[in-house]
């Protein structure tokens, strides 16, 4: 509360009004309707009247805690594969980086499979997709993709 023997600044006046309104001792604006503070006091009263402020009852707290426990237990039991194939993680974890990383990996795999690169083979025929050397790289690509998926589905 502010000292009563000096004129209150508009800031102090409104904060004192809010203290009293929240304390339940004021239900009408204290300022004159012509004053600037009147509309602000009305807004304070509106917040006081409309917005929820009640505390939780002890029984409700306990019920909420029980539901929180159940949710934590459920999340712990949920297997990796359930999460992986639920597809919810795609929505939950979606980020532009995820799309970019997936796209790059996909291109890399397509490139490895279809580009005529000879990885040390002595075979004179080039340009054949899925030669034994390429297959290794396809597997490496798939493992990398899998690792990337693991990375993006990790819990933060």
């Amino acid at each position: 509360m502010t000292q009563p023997n000096r004129p209150l600044s508009p800031d102090e006046k409104l904060s004192d009004f809010a203290d009293q309104a929240l304390g339940g001792t004021l239900h009408q604006p204290a300022s004159d309707p012509a004053e600037e503070g009147y509309g602000l006091e009305e807004t304070v009263l509106r917040l006081r009247r409309v917005m929820p402020t009640s505390a939780l009852e002890e029984s409700t707290k306990k019920q909420m805690l029980a539901r929180l426990n159940a949710r934590i237990a459920k999340e712990q039991k949920e297997s990796f594969w359930t999460r992986l194939f639920s597809l919810e993680w795609i929505q939950d974890q979606y980020r532009p980086q995820f799309a970019i990383a997936t796209g790059v990996l996909a291109l890399l795999i397509v490139g490895l499979v279809f580009l005529p690169i000879d990885f040390g083979s002595t075979d004179s025929i080039t340009g054949t997709a899925l030669k034994s050397g390429n297959q290794v790289w396809v597997i490496v690509g798939l493992v990398a993709l899998f690792c990337a998926l693991l990375w993006f589905t990790r819990r933060k």
Binding site: D11, E12, L14, S15, R46
Partner: peptide, 19 residues
Amino acid sequence: IEATKSLFRRAIAALKTQL
């Protein structure tokens, strides 16, 4: 506390404008 009360008043004024 003065700065806080000033901030409060500006916040209520901005809320009133929004409303």
